[in-house]
Design a protein around this nucleic acid. Structure first.
Length: 729
DNA sequence: TTCTTACCTCTTTTT
DNA sequence: GAGGTAAGAA
């Protein structure tokens, strides 16, 4: 081989990173700790394979979980190579499966025009299946059934594979699953889990296809390997075939998606399945100070099921971690705001700051105080652009134009805006459709020709059908943006939302107009997806990539998000709020055995987001979901070595919250028969320490409700409990 | 058909 | 406590 300059690929790497990037082909597992440069390793590996090992871009498949990660990876590789890598398969599991199914729809037994259901579409579809089986929706909630179906699909199970064990609930669920499957197949609809499962089955059952792809993809690279579920892993195994050229990058300590099917075990199985797997650990951290890393290391040590890893840095200890125990959530928020103002005063920016929490409900109190202080902020999460009601309405019309048999879209807009097609007419249509096993659109046509509808209903239904057909004809040959414009005009959606003079209505009109803008530069049509129209590509894209949730992202503002959505991000200044037993770790995780470890990993993720300064805080009293909670510090606080943490004592001149609200007054009332007040810390000989959160009864029946740190909530009869009072509330 | 009221739920989220 | 959904009334 001629001499080749590889310095641009290798120079910026440390020894371990270099070892990973230049490793010979074969199964490779990179245990990449937080901040250890895993994206760098991944992208440089691809550059290495291409430039040094001379692997064609066609021979490389790199898969991630989010569109953002995929986009970043592609951009960084192109920057590194100085050329476009168009033909390389870089994308999300769902995106790549989708691409595969579009190319091989025949083998996958899908209609060429199949559409993707997002979660909301799927819920409606499941609901429809439940109704068609004449089941009671309150006994068989669509959400539960959907959850069941997705779980089974994530494990690769079809209805016929599931054993019912004579369990009537299981049998019923299987019936719903079956009915849902039939409905999807009929409507040409594919949900997210189906994309993966169908791609896997198609590959597995077509030897020629399998051989083709196995020999084509000489190298597979996986990001966030700890988050793969069973099908994703099976899909990788299948594609890798005997060569086993998989480059898997992950961190078992950052596995926080077990609750939606991710299997950390895949990391362990990987080493069993692929003999001679080479394991490389990346433990050098380039992000955080020593104190922050030591705290993270010490905390995660409490988990038993882990491969083991210790992050280190040579950038020095830095500031200690600060812990603040606030009186309530308002106090907590004000404490944080003071620190942010300080940070900004010292020349920092707001966008260098992240406030993290366990659950979205916690953001409200923080937002209130931020608004009051006039600090700009941005909340992550919530509805994304393509998930908004008005946008989905418009997309549904577009879908019907593309494919009238799409039942989900039909149901969505048949009476939106209202045109006199009520529940009675609809159920009639549904019955015909179910009996004849045809789409709702088809059923309408049949009913109309058979004169099965009375005057008003008949006019309304045929009016709707005519509208869709007219729009189809009128938009033929139009550019995508003109098409969208035409549809939101003529469907009546725009006028419908314009009638709503509230802020919400105006926002909806704006969103619709923005949708036209989204059509101006339509998505590229990959060459290997033949016969796909621009509209189809646009619609699939909308489902697969729901878009940003909020604009103004480049304004200098404080970032508010859950710890889950913070994964992969980093900030100089990080606040982790709500460090309370029962909130984080969550009550549910404490109750179900074995679930606290995932919470601890989440805490580990949170801590390792911080570069320079980390604040932990809690509220002794927090109102959440309209209920009062009296909290003890999260056990995670005590798991961080005390010498790394500086505790801020509540300043005495800060007055305690006054008994001004009725709730507070009752919380402080002392005219009870227990001699204890709510908020009082107590110790029980068996259950340990806790906080009184409620009481009831009189005399010998007087009981207190205590939230114990170790064992959770318990009712105790005062006469027997023998509680020791710990401090004065 | 549309407005109102009752009812439910409320970890975490991407695709 | 709020927000969304679904059933019920005008």
């Amino acid at each position: 081989m001629p001499f080749m300059d590889v310095s641009h690929i290798l120079d910026s790497l440390n020894t371990e990173q270099r070892e990973a990037v230049t490793a010979p082909p074969g199964p490779l597992l990179i245990q990449a700790g937080a901040g250890s440069g895993k994206t760098r390793v991944l992208t440089h590996r691809i550059a290495w394979l291409h430039q040094v090992e001379q692997v064609s871009p066609f021979g490389i498949l790199a898969v991630t979980f989010t569109n953002k990660a995929a986009g970043e990876m592609r951009a960084r590789i192109e920057e590194l190579l100085g050329t476009s890598v168009g033909p390389m398969w870089i994308g999300t599991f769902h995106g790549l499966s989708h691409r595969f199914l579009r190319m091989h729809w025949k083998e996958a037994k899908l209609p060429q025009t199949f559409q993707i259901l997002d979660s909301e579409d799927q819920r409606r579809m499941v609901q429809r299946a439940i109704r068609s089986l004449d089941l009671d929706e309150s006994r068989w909630p669509p959400r539960n059934a959907m959850w069941y179906i997705n779980n089974k699909k994530d494990d690769g199970l079809r209805p016929e594979h599931i054993r019912d064990d004579d369990d009537p609930t299981e049998q019923q669920m299987i019936r719903i699953y079956k009915a849902y499957e039939t409905a999807c197949q009929l409507a040409g609809a594919v949900d997210f889990a189906e994309l993966l499962l169908r791609a896997l089955e198609t590959l597995r059952d077509n030897e020629e296809l399998l051989k083709h792809y196995q020999s084509r993809f000489q190298h597979l690279l996986v990001d966030e390997f700890q988050d793969t579920n069973s099908i994703q892993y099976a899909w990788l195994q299948l594609l890798a075939g005997d060569s086993g050229n998989i480059f898997a990058v992950g961190d078992d300590d950052q596995s926080i998606y077990g609750w939606r099917g991710a299997k950390v075990e895949n990391i362990l199985n990987f080493q069993d399945h692929f003999a001679n797997t080479k394991v490389i650990r990346l433990e050098r951290n380039y992000r955080s100070t020593g104190n922050i890393l030591n705290a993270a290391n010490a905390l995660i040590e409490f988990n038993e099921d882990r491969l083991g890893k210790n992050l280190w840095t040579d950038i020095g200890d830095g500031d200690p971690i600060t812990f603040y125990s606030a009186h309530n959530e308002g106090d907590e928020a004000r404490f944080i705001i003071e620190r942010i103002l300080e940070h900004v005063h010292n020349g920092g920016t707001r966008s260098e700051t992240a406030i993290l929490y366990r659950s979205n409900a916690q953001s409200r109190a923080l937002e209130e105080e931020l608004v009051r202080s006039g600090i700009k902020y941005r909340v992550y999460g919530g509805l994304r652009f393509f998930e908004r009601m008005e946008i989905k309405d418009a997309l549904a019309y577009l879908r019907l134009i593309s494919l009238s048999d799409d039942d989900v879209s039909f149901e969505r807009v048949v009476n939106q805006p209202t045109r006199g097609i009520g529940e009675k007419t609809l159920s009639q249509i549904r019955t015909v459709a179910t009996e004849a096993n045809v789409s709702l659109w088809h059923a309408c046509a049949e009913i109309l020709t058979a004169n099965g509808l009375k005057g008003r209903a008949a006019t309304a239904v045929s009016g709707f059908m005519k509208l869709v057909m007219q729009m189809r004809k009128a938009t033929e040959g139009m550019s995508l943006d003109k098409m969208i414009e035409h549809v939101i005009q003529h469907s009546g959606l725009l006028d419908h939302y314009k009638k709503d003079r509230t802020d919400k209505g105006e926002q909806r009109v704006e969103n619709l107009q923005e949708l036209i803008g989204a059509g101006i530069d339509p998505p590229d049509l990959p060459e290997d997806m033949p016969d796909m129209t621009v509209l189809d590509a646009f619609l699939s894209n909308a489902a697969l990539e729901a878009g940003e949730q909020q604009g103004d992202e480049w304004e200098d503002c404080v970032q508010l998000m859950t710890m889950h959505s913070a994964k992969g991000l980093e900030f100089p200044l990080v606040f982790i709020t709500g460090m309370e037993q029962g909130l984080f770790p969550s009550k549910r995780s404490i109750e179900e055995s074995g679930k606290v470890e995932e919470e601890r990993r989440l805490c580990y993720v949170g801590i390792t987001r911080a570069e320079k300064k980390l604040y932990l805080s809690m509220a002794e009293h927090r109102r959440l979901y309209g209920r009062d909670h009296f909290n003890t510090p999260s056990k995670f606080i005590s798991e961080i070595p005390a010498e790394l943490v500086q505790e801020v004592r509540p300043r005495m001149h800060v007055s305690r919250p006054m008994a001004s609200t009725p709730a507070r007054r009752s919380a402080l009332r002392e005219d009870n028969q227990t001699g204890l007040t709510v908020g009082q810390r107590v110790r029980h000989s068996k259950f340990g320490e806790g906080v009184v959160t409620d009481y009831e009864g009189q005399g010998s029946h007087a009981r207190v409700y205590v939230n114990f740190e170790e064992v959770g909530n318990k009712w105790l009869v005062m006469a027997y409990a023998n509680l020791e009072v710990l401090n004065v509330a």
